[in-house]
């Protein structure tokens, strides 16, 4: 059991690198995309509301594996056209296809989560800003978004974990993430223990992330716990007003 680990640890770690890379990049890109989409989805006069609803519903209602196949294999059907547009290099590469699929998929979930957060912001707090003559932009920046992200924070963490686990499907399109490496090693050795090491690796990654996210959440929700902030925060406090929570 240990000899599998000593023989193949480099491969497994490289796989972990790819898994984390795909997850982090996709989550960040999706985060950037989800914010404007969620705001547009919530706005009262939205021509964009329906297309966004459709987009969210589609990506939440279909398996990630099917989406990945649609992008990676499906693009092959339009190879000539994509070549003409100069996009074939992108769709030929399983890495980019996986990234694109994950970004779209995670954006859909994050839009839905953020929408819930936006709707849960206490209306009185928004109104206090309105009554003061804050512009729409400043209302979002200082009151609505900081509140919405705090509310949505745990759900966003969950979504990123789901993405991390879901990323295992890239092994099916010949990428060597943890799952891909594991399957390759198993096909060479037929030693079941490699699956257990892979499981351990995934658990390590997810629990490390859960820990990190929990720490971040404690930082963000200190106003709900702390009786009194330390007095040294006086100078910091002035910065925090304008900083808000960056997405």
């Amino acid at each position: 059991m240990m000899d599998i680990l000593t023989r193949f640890s480099a491969q497994l770690l490289a796989g972990a690198g790819l898994t984390l890379q795909l997850t982090v990049i996709a989550a960040l890109l999706a985060c950037a995309l989800a914010l404007p989409l969620a705001i547009a989805r919530c706005s009262e006069r939205g021509l964009l509301r329906w297309p966004i609803r459709l987009f969210v519903s589609f990506f939440r209602g279909t398996p990630l594996l099917a989406q990945l196949f649609l992008v990676y294999y499906g693009s092959g059907q339009f190879r000539a056209e994509l070549n003409q547009l100069g996009l074939w290099w992108f769709f030929r590469d399983p890495y980019y296809c996986a990234l694109l699929t994950f970004v779209l998929n995670s954006t859909a979930y994050q839009v839905e989560i953020l929408r819930g957060g936006l709707r849960a912001v206490p209306y009185g707090q928004i109104e206090a800003g309105v009554a003061m003559g804050l512009s729409r932009f400043n209302q979002y920046r200082t009151i609505i978004l900081p509140n919405a992200y705090r509310i949505a924070f745990p759900a966003l963490g969950n979504e990123i974990i789901l993405l991390l686990k879901g990323s295992a499907v890239v092994s099916v399109i010949t990428l060597f993430d943890v799952m891909g490496q594991t399957r390759r090693i198993f096909s060479q050795t037929f030693d079941l223990s490699v699956y257990l090491w892979a499981a351990l690796l995934y658990l390590l990654m997810t629990s490390a992330f859960v820990w990190l996210w929990h720490r971040l959440e404690l930082c963000l929700t200190r106003h709900q716990r702390v009786r009194q902030a330390p007095s040294t925060a006086t100078s910091l406090a002035s910065k925090r007003v304008s900083a808000g929570v960056s997405p």
Partner: peptide
């Protein structure tokens, strides 16, 4: 309708700073 994510001081300062 105080803003719950800001300290008391930040609540008072926001309007004059931004408006």
């Amino acid at each position: 309708n105080l803003w719950s994510h800001m300290t008391v001081l930040e609540n008072v300062m926001l309007g004059p700073c931004l408006v």
